[in-house]
Design a protein around this nucleic acid. Structure first.
Lengths: 127, 127
DNA sequence: GCTTGACTTCGAGCGCACTCGAAGTTCTAC
DNA sequence: GTAGAACTTCGAGTGCGCTCGAAGTCAAGC
């Protein structure tokens, strides 16, 4: 680890984001990073705070079911700068709608599971 | 469609549950049904109300990320009858915990997405 | 009774998102 | 300066949950 702390190693970035080093490299290859991650004196990657923040955000997108291909599209727009803000906003608004639906589905499923557990409780009590 | 309505055809079951006919057969093969679905005079499947309810419940389990293998285990327990009620309850209670965590993650992700959209709104407003 | 279309079984194929391993290079500590 | 860990690239492999297609059978309407 260098004293001049100009970024995290891939192992540190992995620890900071919960994403495996294999997957971090995969994301970069897949075009999900705003730009290629900086390299230290060697070819080793050095993740900036911005990189870490970006990875954290895109894991949120992944977690909520946004496909890699769409994240790539979103990233491409972000690389193009301010001119694409409206389009990026629109993409996120659409995704937000999908996430809200997910939330509703999962909430309903949770209720169904609760209900089934209640039934078991009653069966256990009456036996 | 028979006049003696002793169950739904696979196409009707598909419509009733939102699960494709291919997947309904797959679920049966995979051991996710309590028992093999009844067959009509022919070899054609006839889904009872109970079958439909079961499929609906297990799509809830699938939707919330329970793997096929665990659903199979759960189904096997259910087939064994009342003696396994406590174990089935426990399995669902564990899954419920996982679902609650999902819900928390998704809610947090939704907040992050909202926040990003807010930022875009401000950038748009100030331009 | 014949056509048409839905049904059957079976095994293979697919898409996604990783995940891994091999083979080589570089950094850090001693 | 050398050992050993961590890094690099690259392409192939994996696991999951479907999804599909082929080839044949059956059922309902005409």
């Amino acid at each position: 680890m260098t004293l001049i702390h100009d970024g995290l190693s891939i192992a540190e970035a992995s620890a900071a984001t919960g994403v495996s080093t294999h997957t971090l490299r995969y994301y970069e290859r897949a075009g999900l990073m705003l730009r290629p991650v900086d390299r230290a004196s060697s070819t080793h990657r050095r993740y900036s705070d911005g990189d870490i923040g970006w990875v954290r955000f895109l894991t949120r997108l992944r977690w909520t079911g946004m496909p890699i291909s769409v994240i790539r599209r979103y990233t491409e727009l972000a690389r193009e700068g301010d001119a694409t803000i409206a389009e990026r906003r629109e993409l996120l608004v659409q995704h937000r709608e999908a996430v809200r639906e997910q939330l509703a589905e999962i909430t309903a499923s949770l209720a169904a599971i609760d209900h089934k557990i209640d039934i078991y409780d009653k069966e256990i009590a009456s036996s």
